[in-house]
Amino acid sequence: MSATPLSPDEVQVWRVDVPSDPAALARLAGALPAHERAWAERLRPGGPRGGFVTARSALRRLLAARLGCAPRDVPLETGPRGKPELERAAGARLRFSVSHSGGVALLAIAAQPVGVDVEAARRVHDPLALAARFFSPAERAAVQRAPAAERERRFLELWTAKEAALKVSGVGLPGLADVEVTAGPDGAACAVGPRGHRWALRALDAAPGCVAAIAAVRLPARLDVLHANGTASWSLGDG
């Protein structure tokens, strides 16, 4: 098994839609290894099950194309932080992140740690009060500055940015208060974590109505979201 490497600064983001046809979803689930099918069975149909099955099967096909193996044979294991990772020997430089919400899954792969997060259009009951409780003073001020009609969206932009940064930092939700979304010296969005760790951030135009963000140590100047339907074969090209 030989990995097709990504160039050091290459970051790819793929969007996959959860199939609306239950038979198509069942076919995707059928191609997963037994333990992942078992997990999917525990998830509510019409709820998180579709997102998990779509995202996991897309991840397997995407990594399989890079690793030169069958999707079912991609050696995903639960890493020390409880998230799926490639076994070290298979692709030490191949890193990825997955998020799904509503009917959309986003996958990011890179040669560096990467974090992606998507939120489908949703109601946020009280964005100002939530920001006051869970965000830093500067983040809260950013929500407050937004016109009332845009506060919900501004909150979700900051939330997805924080989630993406938490995923790349590896601490996850418990570190919510430890990562602040701000602007770097060049004006570009970045996240600052404990001990001054800094990650580049970018909002992604992933799907209509969705809010999404990606975080990594470095992000390329141009970052398009590639769109694949649930059953398409991946056309990876050279970047």
């Binding site: 998830l43 509510r44 709820g47 939120e119 949703r122 869970f134 989630e163």
Partner: peptide
């Protein structure tokens, strides 16, 4: 999370 489909933002809310 598994029966009702809550995500992390739902938990925070």
């Amino acid at each position: 999370m598994t029966d009702l489909g809550a995500d992390s933002l739902d938990l925070v809310e």
